[in-house]
C-alpha cells in the first residue's frame, strides 16, 4: 500500500530542494557581484531589472547562445562529462541537509559521511576537466586542484569528527537536534569550525584558495578550454558549492534550523546567508597564497590542529562520562 500523501510530500521536497538550490546558486552570482561592488565602493550590476537582479537571466541567455565549443585536441567524452560531475555531486549533497524539521530529502544515518563522499567526488570533475582539455594551463590547474583538494579533504573530515563525537551520530538531523537541546557546537568546537571554514573554502576553490583557476598565473586553470554552458556548469557548480558549504556550517556548528521566534526554515536561511556573505567578504579581501604556502599551511598546521582538536574533544568527553 502506497502512502500517497507521503509520496507527494517527498517528491515536493526533492524538487523544492533541487530547484531551490539551483535558483539560489544562480542568484548568488548577482549577490556576489553586488556585495563585492559594495566592499569596493562600486555599484556592480544595477541596470538589468530591479537592482540588476535580471543580470543573471541576461547572462544565461548569453551563455546559452554561445557556441558550444569542444577543442579538437580535447578528449571529447571526458571533456563533456567533467562539468556534469561537479553539479551532480554538489546537488546530491543537498539531499542530506535538514532545512527544517521534517524538510529533508533523505534522512541518512550517515548523512555527514555522504556529504564528505560527495565533496570528494567533486575533485574528479576538476581533475578530469583539466586533464581532458589537453592544454598545459588546464593540466596545471587540474594537478593543483587534485593536490589542494585531496590535502584539504583530509582534515575537512577530521575537523567534523569533533561534532560527531559530541552528537554521537553521523545523522545531520540528530546533530541539529542535539544542538537545539544543548548549545551550538561552535562553542565547544571553535577550532573544528575554523578548520572546517578554511578547508571548506579550499574545497570549493573559492578565492583565497583559487589556485586551480588562478587567472593571473594559469589563464583560467582547469576550465580554460571550456566555453558556453559547460563553463556555466563549472561556474554554477562553484556557487552551489558555496551554498552547500554555508548550509553545512549552519547545520553542523550553528544549530541548523534551531532558534527562537522565527520559523525554523527562516532561521536556517538566515544562518546560511550569513556565511555566504562571509565567503564573499573573504573573496573580496584576502590575497591568494603561494602554492607551497598552501600545502605547508594545510599539512603542517591545520592537520595537526584538527587532530589535536579531535584528541582533546575525545578526552573531555571521556572525562565527563
Amino acid at each position: 500500500m502506497i502512502d500517497w500523501a507521503d509520496t507527494v510530500w517527498r517528491l515536493f521536497t526533492v524538487f523544492a530542494v533541487l530547484i531551490g538550490a539551483l535558483l539560489v546558486a544562480a542568484g548568488l552570482i548577482w549577490v556576489e557581484r553586488r556585495l563585492l561592488a559594495l566592499f569596493q565602493n562600486r555599484y556592480g550590476p544595477n541596470v538589468v531589472g530591479p537592482f540588476g537582479t535580471l543580470q543573471v537571466v541576461a547572462d544565461m541567455v548569453k551563455i546559452f547562445t554561445k557556441e558550444d565549443w569542444v577543442p579538437p585536441f580535447a578528449d571529447k567524452s571526458v571533456f563533456v562529462l567533467a562539468p556534469t560531475i561537479i553539479m551532480a555531486a554538489v546537488l546530491l549533497s543537498f539531499a542530506v541537509i535538514p532545512f527544517a524539521p521534517g524538510f529533508q530529502v533523505v534522512n541518512l544515518n550517515v548523512g555527514l559521511l555522504f556529504f564528505l563522499a560527495m565533496s570528494s567526488m567533486g575533485v574528479y570533475s576538476v581533475v578530469l576537466g583539466g586533464w581532458s582539455s589537453n592544454s598545459k594551463y588546464s593540466l596545471l590547474g587540474g594537478v593543483r586542484a587534485a593536490a589542494q583538494m585531496l590535502s584539504y579533504e583530509v582534515f575537512m573530515g577530521l575537523s567534523l569528527m569533533g561534532v560527531v563525537l559530541l552528537a554521537g551520530s553521523f545523522d545531520l538531523a540528530t546533530i541539529v537536534d542535539a544542538q537545539a537541546r544543548g548549545i551550538w557546537y561552535v562553542v565547544p568546537q571553535i577550532v573544528g569550525f575554523v578548520v572546517f571554514l578554511i578547508a571548506g573554502s579550499a574545497e570549493t576553490r573559492r578565492l583565497p584558495f583559487d589556485l586551480p583557476e588562478a587567472e593571473s598565473e594559469l589563464v583560467a586553470g582547469f576550465h580554460a578550454e571550456y566555453s558556453g554552458m559547460k563553463f556555466g556548469m563549472f561556474y554554477v557548480g562553484e556557487y552551489l558549492g558555496i551554498t552547500l558549504l554555508s548550509a553545512m556550517i549552519a547545520t553542523l556548528f550553528f544549530g541548523g534550523w534551531s532558534g527562537p521566534l522565527l520559523p525554523p526554515f527562516l532561521w536556517f536561511v538566515v544562518k546560511a546567508a550569513f556565511f555566504v556573505g562571509l565567503f564573499i567578504l573573504l573573496r573580496g579581501s584576502l590575497p591568494r597564497p603561494r602554492y607551497d604556502q598552501l600545502m605547508a599551511w594545510g599539512w603542517k598546521f591545520l592537520l595537526p590542529l584538527s587532530l589535536l582538536n579531535l584528541l582533546v574533544t575525545g578526552a573531555v568527553i571521556l572525562a565527563m562520562a
Binding site: 555599484y43 579581501s285 584576502l286
Partner: peptide
C-alpha cells in the same frame, strides 16, 4: 584585512553613473 574591507560597505561609492 577582513574588517577593513567590510568597513568599506559603509563608505560612499565612488562610481559616477
Amino acid at each position: 584585512t577582513l574588517w577593513l574591507v567590510f568597513k568599506h560597505a559603509f563608505s560612499p561609492r565612488i562610481t559616477v553613473r
